[in-house]
Design a binder for these strands. Structure first.
Lengths: 102, 102
DNA sequence: CAGCATCCGATCGGATACTG
DNA sequence: CAGTATCCGATCGGATGCTG
């Protein structure tokens, strides 16, 4: 899947991909998010894409899913310790974006 | 083109897109690069994509092109002052990637 | 509620060939 | 040398409907 075996691409492959960075950012801000909560927070992302992106992030061990066995079932997503190490990277990207005029 | 109007997405839109981050990284390392030099440095990127990505980076004012009017013409790409402000972001991404085991 | 399966048009991107 | 043009298969991603 890697376009090129270099640190830049390796990192970007984890956090880009349509909605991953936004999901990660929301999880930094909210700690835990329900699936429906993420839908509400990121309305531009379709349900299908949200599920796909969450799955990939979970597979990459960046986020983890807690299933709450009520009926109907609920879920809670949160960053793994590994995912939390991305904080300086995400913050750096966010900070730069905020510094730009438009 | 923006998927979502937030700093994270705005920044990532500039530096992702198949090969942009790698091109930017190479220009940080080499200062100036010829088109053919970039082809050699990033062999996984087709000539077509390289031209497209360079064009988009130039349009976003991240890189600039100097045309040397010999025959045949040569070009030299380099980062603009604006593009250079991306250094902490790129470095942050690169550093994180290097810290990971595999 | 939290997904998965399918369909299908839109976009991507490689291969190839051509130009000043 | 540094691109551009065209073709075309592969992939993406939205819409919709179904499931436990």
């Amino acid at each position: 899947m890697l376009k090129r075996d270099c640190p830049i691409e390796k990192t970007l492959n984890l956090i880009t991909g349509k909605w991953k960075s936004v999901i990660i950012f929301q999880l930094f801000e909210h700690q835990k998010c329900r699936f429906s909560e993420l839908q509400r927070l990121i309305p531009e992302c379709s349900k299908r894409m949200l599920a796909l992106q969450l799955k990939e992030l979970e597979k990459a061990n960046i986020i983890q899913k807690n299933i709450i066995l009520t009926s109907p079932a609920k879920t809670e997503y949160s960053l793994t310790p590994y995912g939390q190490t991305l904080e300086p990277v995400i913050k750096s990207i966010d900070t730069w974006g905020k510094q730009q005029k438009n």
